[in-house]
Design a binder for these strands. Structure first.
Lengths: 156, 156
DNA sequence: CACGATAGACAACCAGGTTCACTATTACGG
DNA sequence: CCGTAATAGTGAACCTGGTTGTCTATCGTG
């Protein structure tokens, strides 16, 4: 026996839905030449965007410290997904930009996410899926980044 | 500008929905005398259940190594949510059981989750919420534990 | 009764986060 | 025009939660 109220299932299903999508994405990404991509990388690179950014800015966007953002950038750099260059107008800053490989990873992700969404549409119907998205939009903050992934898991 | 296909929003919304619920839960749990509870703890304690379990078993249920389960149990023990006792029938085993405080935390969580779900029902309608849950059930694995929280984030 | 399987614990390591402290550079006000 | 405050990046020390590998104690069985 377990304590099992109706309300307990909702967060679990939301998380499982998220996890299923992310797992499938990365299985497919691995097949398409990006075996080292991690969920975090996708979020960070989406936040970096095609115009580039800096460590401080990325940290603010993702809701983590600039040091943590710096570590993430280092990792992405090691994987060849981004590169850094000094800003000529402000030599303190280092602009982080996606490499072609990074752009490719993002393009692949976009395509795969579309395919996964289409697969869901087949299972539950396009109409219901649109309703599901609309409903989630109503109960979640509009700000799509600031996942604060560490926050809900991390240090007190 | 960013790479922003329709499919990209879905996982984000699912995760944000999850996060909103979990954040609200823990804000409320803190107010109700459980300020040290973490998301992980709730999952683990739900998996431990009122009948108790062992480290190996808990690890299997949660989809992590027995060592990781052991560490989690240690933490929960330090917080006073569980206690361990040797199994008289098999002195290798140590049965982990919820303390009254642990049960209280789970009971509080159950009540709060119900309240949060009711709040969602007000926003999007009870009917739509039921549909949302039903649709998610169709696209997620039936096995509600095995979140593999580390898995989608962790080491390759 | 010996030997394989199991439960738990310990160590070393990794990833990703935090804070504190420091340097280099830029921006600004007296 | 210069001294000072603010900002960008980095490094170090630490925390949490995970991993694998190894070791011991106990159980169960041929």
């Amino acid at each position: 026996m377990s304590i099992d109220p109706p309300g307990f299932e909702l967060p679990l299903r939301l998380f499982l839905g998220f996890r299923v999508l992310i797992d499938d994405l990365h299985a497919e990404l691995a097949r398409q030449g990006h075996p080292h991509a991690r969920p975090m990388h996708g979020f960070a690179m989406q936040a970096i965007g095609v115009n580039g950014t800096t460590a401080v800015e990325l940290g603010r966007t993702l809701g983590v410290s600039k040091q943590a953002a710096g570590k993430t950038i280092e990792t992405l750099e090691r994987l060849g997904y981004v590169e850094r260059a000094r800003d000529p107008h402000d030599t303190r800053r280092k602009i982080v930009r996606l490499t072609p490989s990074g752009v490719d990873m993002l393009v692949c992700s976009a395509r795969i996410f579309d395919e996964l969404r289409a697969r869901w549409a087949v299972v539950i119907g396009e109409e219901r899926l649109r309703e599901l998205e609309a409903d989630l939009r109503k109960v979640t903050p509009p700000d799509v980044f600031r996942l604060d992934v560490p926050g809900w898991f991390g240090t007190s």
